[in-house]
Design a protein around this nucleic acid. Structure first.
Lengths: 233, 233
DNA sequence: ACCCCTTTGTAACAATTCGTAAGGTTTGGG
DNA sequence: CCCAAACCTTACGAATTGTTACAAAGGGGT
């Protein structure tokens, strides 16, 4: 599966350059155009995963273009515009745009919003979620841990919560208070022990050596650290 | 088909009032909460089409809540926050939010952005007659399940209700309370067991391995998840 | 009306999950 | 080196869920 393709349509060369650089660094394939005509010609060939469209184009009515793109072709469209009035944003969104970003913008936010659109597009918003780390593959949709040899070990919901928390913040200290919050536990003396048990059970399934844990490390008096090179997908 | 349901979670009464009024005028059903705990309790019963969540909540870490909502439950989340830094927006979106609106906001834009989410989602319940999933074809007009080899197994009305509920929301957690609602069961001690039996019988017809169900997964204390790539038609 | 079959809820028992308690082990300061 | 606090692990039990057996309810054909 190749990287998502993002099309950029903007008449300012500088904007195109900034966006192209930020998007390629973020791992997207890009394609940029200065005129609507070229852009629509390219659409005959490929359908981009997301289109970034500037409204103030010299050779066409931007809103009409957005409308055609979004409602007729079903493309995901993010408007990038210098017009910042609420009314502009509302009409842009009502016409079918998926998002509306005003100039000046921060490239990082553009990337984040593109990712949000891609995520939403998937049939299964929350799952198909798998993470690889150090020979293991965690399938959160099936609640299964897969060995590097392909052997599978099921894990429970409670164990999954802990594992997900770790995989979201690898190589970073996670305090017990943070866990308590993330795992929805009521603050209390007793919940500490419950968390211990959850972690203990997770360690067992990850076949950790109690004497020498390689993945889930305890930091005495501070919390835990999950070591492991995590890749989501 | 009833109006989409929007849940509002914000600790400021005035904000809740403004949003509620604007949304109801726009034709949505609304439901608002001041505390995360109440909000999560309500989620046991219904899954809103869109959740508007304020990050600065007194009783929990808002970001962790968003993460749980978006990634684990597959809900559509729009963050409404007073924090306007780019970094805040990026982390909010990366954690799974579908959109990020900063205060002060214009209610009209909020409505437009909610509509954009609903349009993109289109997870609306299907009313088609047949659905394909993982080698099976369900014919709701004939009350028959068709094998990938063409062999047919009849299913009853009660089993069909459960199956349709699953097929309408694949790969998403469905709580028992939601089922009870959808299947018209009175909330009571005894109906719980009846649902278990319905699911057990459906599992049998889908030839699920009791030890390792591949399609209907139980999440202890939370509900069920139907895994399967569903295509209607 | 009678019989037989299907459907579906209820009851009873088995299996699983997960927090709690209890006892053991490790850590780090004095 | 000693001790208290922090942490790990095991066992147990309450709650949750699965499965089977059974009975009530309904439908069609004779």
């Amino acid at each position: 599966m190749s990287a998502p393709l993002v099309s950029i349509l903007d008449d300012e060369p500088e904007i195109r350059a900034i966006l192209t650089e930020a998007l390629e660094e973020a791992g997207f394939r890009t394609q940029s155009f200065s005129r609507a005509r070229e852009f629509e010609a390219a659409l005959q060939r490929v359908t981009p995963d997301v289109c970034l469209v500037d409204l103030s184009l010299p050779d066409t009515d931007g809103l009409a273009l957005v409308h055609r793109l979004a409602l007729e072709r079903g493309a995901k469209v993010i408007i990038i515009s210098g017009r910042a009035q609420v009314q502009d944003r509302v009409t842009g969104l009502e016409l079918g745009a998926d998002d509306y970003i005003t100039k000046p913008f921060d490239p990082a936010e553009v990337v984040a919003r593109i990712r949000a659109r891609l995520r939403a597009g998937r049939a299964a918003p929350q799952s198909g979620q798998t993470a690889r780390f150090n020979g293991w593959t965690a399938h959160f949709d099936r609640y299964v841990l897969e060995d590097d040899s392909g052997a599978e070990t099921p894990f429970s919901h409670a164990e999954g919560e802990v594992l997900r928390l770790f995989l979201d913040s690898p190589k970073r200290l996670i305090s017990r208070a943070q866990m308590q919050d993330a795992l929805g536990g009521a603050a209390g003396e007793s919940f500490d022990r419950a968390m211990d048990v959850r972690i203990s059970r997770l360690r067992t399934k990850l076949r950790e050596d109690p004497k020498n844990p390689r993945l889930i490390k305890t930091i005495y008096g501070a919390g835990y650290i999950f070591l492991g090179d995590v890749g989501w997908g």
